[in-house]
Design a protein around this nucleic acid. Structure first.
Lengths: 386, 386
DNA sequence: AGATATTTTTCTTGATCCGGGATTAATGAG
DNA sequence: CTCATTAATCCCGGATCAAGAAAAATATCT
């Protein structure tokens, strides 16, 4: 630990305080963070010099004394790009340093490792152009559907059929901006912390369902990765003893009840027509298809078992549910609440709110932006905030 | 964060490095921690001035150059006392700053709040005298069987029948040394980290059984308490759907299968004779009583379910089992392994060792010493290490 | 209108800490 | 006895925080 790490810590805290609460004053930052006035002043001055913040004179509020100045992250100070790699598409979003999305872009993807670099570079160019900004590109976050090692390697991504792909290496040859890569679900959790319903919340558990089920343990202000980087892979929590077989070989995993393929299979098994995608399921549920509705209900029940286990273990202020779950909240909510009430420790459940993510559906691809922003401002960052 | 916090962090790391590896040299500390030689030298010098360490000239190992000096924590530099409050007894242990136990003492306790201060003071005096040391008493750690708030309040202790007892206040009036209080299970986990099988291990999950079942999540080098301080209360994980009723009101809790009363009740229900204590159970198991053996087997099976859930969630290097479980490891081990193999995600289970605690049975009451040592050397300490 | 009180921000100064290079201490080999 | 080698210490430069003084900007009182 070096003495300059202290400064970086202070700068990071102050940056996000301003980002989260635009028009905040130095006085207020001091009150919230407990930092010394000198510290705050000197860092804000530096931010100002770098063009990171804008100071807005605020109308003095009918009381004597110098009026506080309103600080906000300058929307033109820099550009971040988030990239989401999916099985058949690449998603791109450009955002300012404040995290506000400026432009979106998506393009199909052929799932070939060889073409990844070109495709990503093209997408970044396209979304940057579409943003209409000329601010420098400060960071690019790549959100990947698989296990990512700390060295920037995509160790395993079943959906893509990839193993040990050195994504960071491949892309840094063709993208000049600083690159940050991470697991998609953990990136989504970080986005939830930075931009979503868990803003400013230091402890929450994130659960995500899509073609698989994943999760993240957001503890003490950061995502807990564990000694081997696999902590928080919540898809294989056991929820039904001797239950359905899961692709992992064990039985009764959450993933075997909540993933999109699992839901589709169950609907078909109950005599429903073939399910093409999750949208199909939602449409049918909307139309009142009883098979689909009851499958969702059962899924909510089982989801409740998983959530109650998490509540009993972590006693978190919030459990956030993202991905397909969030889109189907109408059909899962009731049975979820019911099983939660039955299974969670009453004292603990009283301290936990279970919420459905909104940004996951409203503002896609922000996971990559969260990775980039964390990379640019975070404590091991080598940039921007000195 | 102040600049002096850096020094405290360095000092703390160096202290424990020396404690864990006596006769270590400065060179080796530098290699292990990555700190600068100046930093290490200056802190070791300060420790020396304070009498915390002894420098032993080591025989130069047949190669040229100045031989390294061996550093160890001086056993006479200070005294720590650990106090364990149980339902019918108080346990005391005196130890040096290196954590080595010097004397034990136990006395009966009438469970009255009023008499606690006197009883604890007497016990501390007795065990200090028995230690034969005259070193100053640097800290006292009180390990309490209940929920402890950060302000030193014992919020709720069912076994004692206490609620909202300001233990820290009560005792600080009669004990002059710095006091540190904590939950007994979390203190035991800390002891496991400082003195036991999880020494030097930054991530592990601790599970404890006794009259109840508790646990601790040791993550990234510290015990995770969560926003409300209840994280890691693992006794109410659900392990059997619609299972036995637990005292918490829900059904199928781990505690309802693994706590001593639960085991006793189950043995009696299977026609066994009345069970007085856990020792009775062990004796009968030893004698081959089939009812007891099969109850233990079932408990191991269910313990395996809980452990596999923890493995699936945390992917920890180690799950440590303490308390009565550790004493009954012979009878639980096999069925535990079996259900673990069936339920845990194979990739994750391969990275996890499940171990039984040894200090819990061999060296009792070290939880309090761990609390005291952490209080004295830890990062928010106001003493010893400047 | 001008002086004064009040509130917020900035500047100045002192102490502390890290970090790299130079120095000293302690040993074996020749 | 001298030299090479390795370990620990010392010295000094750069950076940081913290506390108090000063400056800036406004409302209010006279």
């Amino acid at each position: 630990m070096r003495t300059s790490d202290i400064r970086r810590y202070h700068a990071n805290e102050i940056f996000h305080r301003i980002r989260i609460e635009p028009q905040i004053s130095q006085k207020e930052i001091i009150r919230r963070t407990g930092f010394d006035k000198s510290t705050v002043s000197s860092i804000v001055t530096r931010f100002d010099e770098l063009g990171l913040v804008v100071r807005t004179p605020t109308a003095a509020g009918n009381r004597p004394g110098r009026p506080a100045e309103g600080l906000s992250i300058s929307p033109d100070s820099g550009l971040l790009v988030g990239v989401q790699v999916e099985s058949e598409e690449l998603g791109f979003v450009a955002a300012g340093l404040d995290g506000r999305p400026l432009a979106h872009h998506r393009q199909s993807f052929n799932r070939k490792v060889k073409t990844l670099d070109r495709a990503v570079a093209d997408g970044i160019a396209a979304v940057t152009a579409a943003s209409g900004r000329t601010s420098p590109l400060l960071g690019v976050g790549i959100s990947l559907p698989g296990l990512v090692s700390t060295e920037g390697m995509l160790v395993h991504a079943p959906i893509l059929g990839w193993r040990d792909v050195p994504v960071l290496d491949l892309l840094s040859r063709i993208v000049s901006a600083p690159l940050y890569i991470g697991n998609d679900v953990k990136a989504a959790a970080m986005a939830e912390h930075m931009f979503g319903n868990c803003i400013d919340l230091d402890d929450f558990i994130y659960l995500f369902s899509g073609s698989g089920v994943g999760g993240a343990l957001f503890l003490d202000g950061e995502i807990y990765l564990g000694a081997h980087g696999l902590a928080g892979e919540l898809g294989h929590m056991k929820v039904v003893p001797q239950g359905r077989l899961c692709s992992c070989g064990a039985a009764g995993c959450l993933s075997a009840y909540l993933s999109e393929p699992a839901l589709a299979a169950e609907v078909e098994a109950r005599g429903g027509k073939t399910v093409r995608s999750f949208d199909t399921l939602l449409d049918r549920a909307e139309a009142g298809d009883p098979a689909v509705v009851s499958v969702f209900e059962q899924a909510g029940e089982i989801l409740g078992a998983a959530v109650s286990n998490l509540v009993n273990i972590f006693n978190p202020p919030v459990v956030a549910l993202g991905g397909d779950m969030a889109r189907a909240s109408r059909y899962l909510g009731q049975s979820l609440e019911r099983s939660l009430g039955r299974l969670a420790h009453p004292n603990m459940a009283a301290q936990t709110r279970v919420i459905f993510s909104e940004i996951a559906t409203d503002r896609p691809y922000l996971g990559g932006v969260a990775l980039a922003l964390d990379g640019v401002t975070g404590l091991d960052a080598s940039s921007v905030i000195p």
